[in-house]
Design a protein around this nucleic acid. Structure first.
Length: 402
RNA sequence: GGGCGAAUACCAAAGCAGCCAACUGGGCCUGACUGUAAAUCAGGUGGCUACGGCCUACGGGGGUGCAAGUCCCUCUUCGCCCA
């Protein structure tokens, strides 16, 4: 494959959404040289769902791939036994091999949305760690000191708080670094919290008389509400989310984050993005319009253009023109007349009558029938059930009776 | 191995015998205002109910007492300290 050495593209590759690059000049020259570089990316097959925050690295990998470089994926089926502490403040449970396989399959189907899988080289690091001799392990550990490891923020905090740190956990950065030696990587990418591990790779490569890899880390993007993106917070956009859902979530994004998302999660030209920034600053444009462009651009990472446009139309009709959503979940109710609380429960909108009752009292329940909308306020009332009737709870939940 | 302390709803965290379905904050839900943004404001946040109440809940089990998150015993888990 031919290597693209267009300096403009290379400079963008180096600057867009990146946090730290070591050693930047070296990497730039390497990219310009026309040599195919080996780009290492390690995954720890633990969490199956990839969200946009994790995807920023993948977009960058795609950039490398587009220039013709080789992505080398390391599946940490051995290191998973250790558990990286970079993003944790406590020990991680050990996962079974079967679970790892399962997660991996899931993982690949997701990154396949962004990367060309057939051009990727893959390794399991058990290939080399599985048969490594203790002697070798000692040898690679020698260049590191306990102090160095303890210096790491997460270890340090745990140390100071008196929380336990497994001895094996200290080995993690070294193991990750050794992967770089085995696959002779030229560049390794990782999250902003990975810097230490990535640098360990450089040290080890030197030890094995290899040229140290360059290292690239990324800006963290925040979740929809401005907090750290985390599945347990529910503020994530998963790359497998339905386009309509994704569009809606992106429209609810905090304004301050628009630019970060443009930069890190789309590949619209930077000139275009800077134009949006100006428009936002000038206050002449409703930020909503800019967000629509953003939402479409992000969806196009994963779906054809028409799908993204469809999602936009759907959103506009539902939320700007207050039309009903195109797809409403349908339910069957056999009663002809039924107490409203029972109806709401049968429709699956609420788990308990008390909850349903509260929302009714607060004016959150609407019944739409033949174009007439009625807000229900009396929870003792009975309703005549008619086909085609739509029940709306709050702003977002709809059910249609058939 | 020895000593000490903690465990409360989705999370954090009050309560230390009756006024406790349990303060407060976050989250979440509803409404107002909006750009389904943020911020703000108001309300809500165990279940059932004939709307009078009833039932289930404060790590598990047992006890004292008219009455127990609240006291006692025991078990489990977690944390701290000493060896």
């Amino acid at each position: 494959m031919k290597i693209d050495t267009d300096p403009k593209k290379i400079d963008e590759l180096l600057s867009r959404g990146t946090e730290d690059i070591i050693d930047k000049d070296h990497l730039r020259n390497a990219l310009l040289s026309g040599k195919q570089l080996r780009i290492k990316f390690g995954i720890d097959p633990t969490g199956p769902k990839i969200h946009l925050g994790r995807a920023t690295v993948l977009f960058k990998l795609r950039d490398f791939q587009k220039l013709g470089h080789k992505i080398v994926l390391i599946i940490g089926n051995f290191t998973a036994l250790v558990g990286d502490a970079s993003d944790k403040d406590s020990r991680r449970p050990v996962i079974s091999q079967e679970k790892i396989e399962e997660n991996l399959k899931d993982y690949l189907s997701q990154i396949g949305k962004i990367l060309k899988l057939d051009e990727i080289e893959m390794h399991y690091n058990k290939e080399w760690f599985g048969e490594m001799k203790l002697e070798e392990i000692l040898k690679i550990s020698m260049d590191f000191t306990a102090q160095q490891m303890i210096q790491r923020r997460n270890f340090k905090e745990r140390w100071e708080e008196g929380k336990e740190i497994g001895l094996h956990e200290l080995l993690y950065p070294i193991l990750q670094g050794y992967d770089s030696v085995k696959i002779k990587s030229d560049v390794e990418l990782g999250g902003f919290d990975q810097l230490f591990n990535l640098k360990a790779g450089r040290d080890l490569q030197r030890m094995y008389n290899q040229e140290p890899q360059d290292v690239m880390t990324f800006k963290m993007i925040y979740g929809l509400d401005g907090r750290k993106m985390s599945t347990s917070w529910g503020n994530v956009i998963n790359i497998l989310d339905e386009p309509n859902d994704m569009f809606g979530k992106l429209m609810a994004l905090r304004d301050e984050l628009i630019m970060d998302y443009f930069t890190c999660c789309t590949r619209l030209p930077m000139e275009e993005i800077n134009g949006y920034q100006k428009q936002l600053n000038s206050k002449e444009v409703n930020p909503k319009e800019i967000k629509k462009i953003l939402a479409k651009a992000i969806i196009e990472n994963f779906h054809p253009k028409e799908v993204a446009e469809g999602a936009e139309k759907e959103w506009e009709s539902q939320f700007e023109e207050k039309e009903l959503p195109e797809k409403i979940e349908e339910i069957v109710i056999t009663d002809t007349e039924i107490n409203i609380l029972e109806l709401l429960i049968k429709a699956g909108l609420f788990k308990s009558k008390g909850e349903a009752r509260r929302v009714i009292e607060q004016g959150g329940i609407k019944i739409i029938n033949n174009g007439n909308t009625e807000i229900k306020t009396d929870w003792q009332e009975s309703v005549k059930v008619e086909k085609g009737m739509i029940i709306q709870s709050g702003k977002r939940f709809f059910k249609k009776i058939i």
